[in-house]
Write a protein that binds this DNA or RNA. Structure first.
Lengths: 169, 169
DNA sequence: CTTGGAATGTCAACAAGGCTGACATAAAAT
DNA sequence: ATTTTATGTCAGCCTTGTTGACATTCCAAG
């Protein structure tokens, strides 16, 4: 070791905080994310869609009837970006946009049967990989995985995430 | 529960494999990755660079003297994509490209002092967040985090990752 | 009732960063 | 001498992000 840069060995067991350990975590995150998106990407490509479409489908499915503004802040993109994606999904009959009942300025977004079908295929592919990884790592590792990920989020995002985390879709 | 779709409750403790649990993991991964890249992104923007530059700097720093082909396969992009990024980094004096000593077709890539400086700032920002997350979650959670991530990678990527994982930079 | 502002949609233009295809060069390998 | 490999470069395309400008609709406050 030596070359000390912060994160040295404290009185306790802080070996997991060395720069070396952190670097491994960073690279693991980078490579794992590639795997995480690989399977849906293949399906999307066959349909002529991209990840942006997947994200929209996922969160519309997650929260039936969500508004555009809601979706915007969840996804963290501009309305113009989202709108381009939504427009094609609506045109292709995967998403339905209904005028809001209480506030008619708003649009409530829903998946059509066809949209739900694609969403299912995408998320099942992603779940399958996650399932294999979970199974290989075991329940205790999974708990740790989730803990670290939650701690890694931006504060505001984490609040948002935790708010909907345990809600049934 | 019910609504069973795969991943049901087996004889043992397989609750962590329900679709619900998998979905939470998927969303955690999505939101955490945003946090993971947020800090470097801010620094990069101030320099007029993007994530692609960060990735190149990271892996050149990681493996001094690596060749273009090596970098290509690590990053998983085309040479044209990488070249665009490398060209600007070389032009700006952050990266040096030396003709290979044994094989003069190859180019060996190195960070200049200035390049190492930016790399340091970027990785330190990223480490800082990772450090906070690790500290909050604890060593056991970190072990689980890494286990799940490794299990989530594509087989080929995982081999690549494990090969260099424990090498000192 | 009128007006201000919020929510949404749309058009245009631009940039980053992926991709493919084609072609050039130098050097190694056969 | 020829082929293959490693690299670089040009041109063009796509997705997905960005701003800015502007129209529409409609709630809500004066």
């Amino acid at each position: 070791m030596a070359e000390g840069h912060g994160s040295a060995i404290g009185g306790e067991n802080l070996l997991f905080l060395t720069d070396e350990q952190l670097r491994k975590g960073i690279e693991a995150m980078f490579f794992a994310y590639r795997g995480f998106t690989a399977d849906p990407d293949r399906i999307l490509e066959a349909h002529g869609y991209g990840r942006a479409h997947h994200r929209a489908l996922h969160f519309i499915n997650r929260t039936h009837g969500t508004t555009v503004n809601n979706l915007l802040s969840t996804l963290g993109v501009t309305k113009q970006s989202l709108n381009r994606v939504l427009r094609t999904l609506i045109k292709d009959g995967l998403v339905e946009s209904r005028v809001g009942r209480t506030d008619r300025r708003e649009r409530n977004l829903f998946l059509t049967t066809q949209g739900a079908e694609l969403e299912r295929a995408l998320s099942e592919a992603q779940r399958e990989r996650m399932r294999a990884a979970y199974r290989a790592a075991g329940p205790q590792a999974v708990a740790g995985f989730r803990q670290v990920l939650e701690a890694m989020m931006d504060d505001e995002i984490r609040r948002q995430y935790q708010n909907v985390r345990d809600r049934r879709p």
